[in-house]
């Protein structure tokens, strides 16, 4: 039997990989992919706790997370397309007009 801790460790590693990607990468699409990795690490935690708890609610929360991730991907990629059209670049450093 695989214990809960195994899944929590794996989820922590995946979440750290996603966080590192957000900080290190300079490509907006890869940053969005890193966010997807982090969402999946959270999903894994929720499902593992749900199994441990013996409730089905964890899987339903994952269903909602996936829905929100789909909406986020649609809007985020539309923003990426609009920005690329504006500057011909995917580097977030090219879009610093809102920075002060």
């Amino acid at each position: 039997m695989v214990s809960l801790n195994h899944y929590l460790f794996l989820s922590a590693i995946l979440f750290a990989i996603g966080t590192t990607g957000v900080f290190l990468r300079r490509n907006m699409i890869t940053v969005l992919l890193s966010i997807e990795i982090m969402l999946n690490a959270a999903n894994l935690t929720i499902v593992a706790f749900g199994r441990d708890w013996g409730a089905v609610d964890g899987q339903i929360i994952v269903f909602f997370v996936v829905t929100v991730a789909a909406a986020e991907a649609a809007v985020g990629l539309a923003i990426v397309i609009a920005l690329f059209r504006l500057r011909e670049s995917l580097d977030p450093d090219a879009f610093t007009s809102l920075k002060w």
Partner: peptide, 18 residues
């Protein structure tokens, strides 16, 4: 669905290699 959407955008934009 989601990752194919990503793939579609990556190929559509034809972004230069980072």
């Amino acid at each position: 669905a989601i990752l194919v959407l990503f793939l579609f955008v990556v190929m559509l934009l034809n972004a230069p290699k980072e």
